[in-house]
Design a protein around this nucleic acid. Structure first.
Length: 307
DNA sequence: TCCTATGTTGTATG
DNA sequence: ACATACAACATAGG
């Protein structure tokens, strides 16, 4: 589910726990969402840590914590006067929600449900990470700015997201249809399937157009509508998971026989770049002159299964 | 049974 | 090394 605005929505939900300590941690060991991480270390270090802040960057989330430094002679009764302040250890939790991930807040008595893989118990609530399909990912780091976070690309709504920046990225992906280019998180962090369709519809560009064939004016529109759709999504979706208004393609794109809200023409759907794509044939002219020839394309149904 | 799903990534190929 | 295409990941629902 989550793209930029849905991710932002979930970030705000967990914000309810900011300022409070984590008393206990539940982590469903061995689940794919913890790939590359030790749940034992995560549970040990997050226990006792205080949630301090949250950040979103595209579809990536980062929650930062601090915990009192673990004293080397913790059991020594006389060694109680290590410096209390200034000896706090930074911790961060990276969260990617994949296709079906979500963050919720539950009562502190919450028992983890089938797909709840991480639960941070605070005194008055439980912060829950859930993900049925397990495409999401949890990362743990003993710093407030892990390397992967520092390396994230230019945000769509930042000042660095210039026409030139976009043009350069499209040039690198010149031979690829524009649709999968918009889904590439290194160029358009936070954009997902529905936002990409919305952007192309507003920019009046067919999703199958090769990125390298876009005219300068079209690149300008891509950049402009990308920002427009991100702002609008944040406005309509982030506060309470609402839908954008009926003037948006979003509302019509999944309905069979759904009509373009601008022209009333019936919308078209096809797989482009491996993802179902919806567009308005009236507003987004097909780049392929000989449309009828497409039927002649051989179906690679029984292609060679290795061996 | 077969198809779909608001995502990423490893692998093969050019 | 770089760009491109696609199967695989895992589960639920129509």
């Amino acid at each position: 589910m989550p793209e930029l605005a849905e991710v932002e929505h979930f970030r705000r939900r967990w914000n309810e726990g900011i300022g409070d300590r984590v008393l206990r941690v539940f982590a469903r060991k061995g689940k794919r969402v913890f790939r590359g991480e030790s749940t034992a270390i995560l549970v040990r270090d997050l226990g006792g840590a205080r949630l301090e802040a949250s950040h979103a960057h595209g579809k990536q989330l980062l929650f930062t914590f601090t915990r009192p430094t673990r004293s080397v002679r913790e059991q020594g009764p006389g060694s109680r006067r290590r410096q209390q302040s200034g000896s706090e250890q930074p911790i961060s939790l990276g969260v990617h929600l994949g296709m079906t991930g979500a963050l919720r807040v539950e009562p502190p008595t919450h028992r983890p449900k089938k797909h709840d893989h991480l639960v941070l118990y605070q005194e008055t609530r439980a912060l829950v990470f859930t993900d049925p399909r397990l495409f999401g990912r949890i990362r743990f780091s003993a710093t407030h700015e892990p390397a992967w976070w520092a390396d994230l690309p230019t945000q769509v709504l930042s000042s660095g997201f210039t026409v030139q920046h976009v043009a350069r990225f499209l040039e690198r992906r010149a031979r690829s249809p524009i649709k999968p280019v918009l889904l590439d998180q290194r160029g358009f962090p936070g954009i997902g399937n529905w936002m990409a369709d919305e952007i192309l519809w507003r920019a009046r560009i067919h999703p199958r157009r090769l990125a390298g064939t876009l005219l300068p004016a079209e690149v300008v529109r891509i950049r402009q509508e990308t920002r427009f759709v991100c702002r609008g999504a944040l406005r309509f979706v982030a506060p309470s998971f609402g839908d954008p208004p009926g003037s948006w393609l979003f509302v019509h794109r999944w309905k069979d026989g759904g009509r373009c809200p601008a022209t009333g023409v019936v919308l078209v759907r096809a797989t482009i770049g491996g993802r179902t794509t919806c567009w308005s044939p009236a507003l987004q002219p097909d780049p392929d002159q000989r449309t009828t020839k497409r039927a002649a394309r051989a179906k690679p149904a029984q292609s060679i299964r290795a061996q």
